[in-house]
Design a protein around this nucleic acid. Structure first.
Lengths: 259, 259
DNA sequence: TCTCCTGTTTCATATAGAGCAACGATCGCA
DNA sequence: TGCGATCGTTGCTCTATATGAAACAGGAGA
């Protein structure tokens, strides 16, 4: 083992390979062949083959006997149920999320920060047929989604600077890519108590988000509504934000926050 | 490596350890300490410690810095989103499940067979405050839940016999534990086109399930409603079953089945 | 302060996993 | 039908690496 960072010295390489393989599955590429994985991850074919056999034996991947392609298995689904049930926010937010969707008529999410990204824990869809923009477990950037900006705004300086240092990639013409602009933008969000994104991440998609507090008054999650710009229009933002903020407060109260 | 079954010969032991550790987390024990895992799985403390460090580095577990206990991480949630989006049934069933819940007023599920168990893919809750009997990803026996019995009834002889051979454990006084009784019971289910469980698995809990077909006419999933016996009464079974069967047909149609 | 119980790290050793290459199986195309 | 090309699996060898025992380092609690 030559020249590994201190942190990684004690990591088991074959386990790491297995986990990297699992994480390489995406929404766009939910099926993988051995050789694809081999080249993509720079691992030997036989290594991948044996790793996949092990993953399959524990139900983490499923091998289509016909095409010989692998998909993620249902063991993962079993584990995800445990992840959720273990998160207080998840438990408390379901009914409030439902009410919010009914009241506004747009899809709503609960999300948290993980590994300098927003990850969506929960989703309640509206009746409109525009769907599948997001999904539970999806990760998005912190600096150009409304939920991400809320989570970032209420985090510490350090986190903000790390995000900036990683680079502010431009997704649309509205994405905030200037560090100084972002800093003041985030301060405004804290003052207003909510954030909105007008096509900052996806063309034609707007969103509004508010913080969720825990019993210590720390922001632990964000609640947000998303929709096409035709329905979430700029002049409606204030009105919608009021409802989102109040829904966030309601969950916070259930989490033991009061103020 | 001495005396391993052929199948397991080519499995990577350290990866297998990691996966076994992940699967050892349950709804009842969502938090684990190193030493617990060590004794529970018969692995050396240091092995577990290093494995957990690796799992944590890829976000599969999260280490509470205060208590030093581990919980499952959000990487798993990300993967579960991909599992779902990859399953046709999942996509098609959401709105129909909603309608069913509205019409009957009880919680409904979509489930499939995996590893000789029922696993719940999707859940839509009713408004009644009796909750958390099941959750997405939960696994239950095939032979004493309505969804399990549907899936089993429409599977092949071989599967049925394997389940019987594994043993029919009694959960309540109504659990079918006699192999011959189960065989004829399953035949009846196929004739009726639906299954019901009157407190066969949990005291006080009844359920009704119907099959979901794919485009080839194979049963690939079950749709079911569950509720307390006070609400799902025996004399109501036929009426509810009609609605469940029809919902199942509706999903089947969307899956390309027609007949 | 002194135990007891954690989890992490060190170190030596055995071994398990990686790489290579050869083998079948399957596919595509002529 | 036959011929390459591609792909996944499997022996085999060798070394990198995962393992276990024991020592170490922190807490927690008495």
């Amino acid at each position: 083992m030559l020249a590994l960072k201190k942190e990684e010295e004690s990591h088991l390489s074959s386990v790491k390979n297995a986990l990297r393989i699992l994480r390489s599955f995406t929404m766009d590429e939910p099926e993988k062949k051995i050789s694809d994985l081999s080249t993509a991850l720079g691992l030997n074919k036989s290594t991948v083959s044996r790793t996949m056999a092990t993953l399959a034996s524990e139900g983490f991947v499923y091998k289509d006997p016909e095409t010989k392609k692998y998909r993620l298995g249902l063991s993962i689904l079993s584990l995800s149920g445990i992840v959720n049930s273990n998160m207080d926010v998840y438990r408390e937010s379901q009914p409030i999320l439902n009410k919010l969707v009914e009241s506004i008529g747009e899809t709503a999410h609960i999300s948290v920060m993980d590994n300098l990204e927003v990850i969506y824990l929960q989703k309640v869809e509206c009746n409109h047929p525009v769907r599948f923009l997001t999904h539970v477990g999806r990760r998005n950037p912190l600096y150009c989604t409304s939920s991400g900006k809320v989570l970032l705004a209420y985090s510490n300086e350090n986190t903000i600077e790390t995000v900036i240092k990683k680079g502010l990639q431009s997704f649309t013409k509205n994405t905030i890519t200037d560090p100084q602009k972002l800093r003041t933008h985030l301060k405004n969000i804290k003052e207003n108590g909510f954030a909105y994104s007008i096509e900052e991440f996806l063309e034609g998609v707007n969103s509004i988000a508010a913080p969720v507090y825990d019993y210590k008054g720390r922001v632990i999650a964000a609640i947000s509504v998303v929709g096409p710009k035709q329905r979430i229009q700029q002049h409606k933002v204030q009105g919608i934000a009021k409802k989102v903020v109040s829904a966030g407060r309601e969950i916070s109260t259930r989490m033991g926050y009061w103020k």
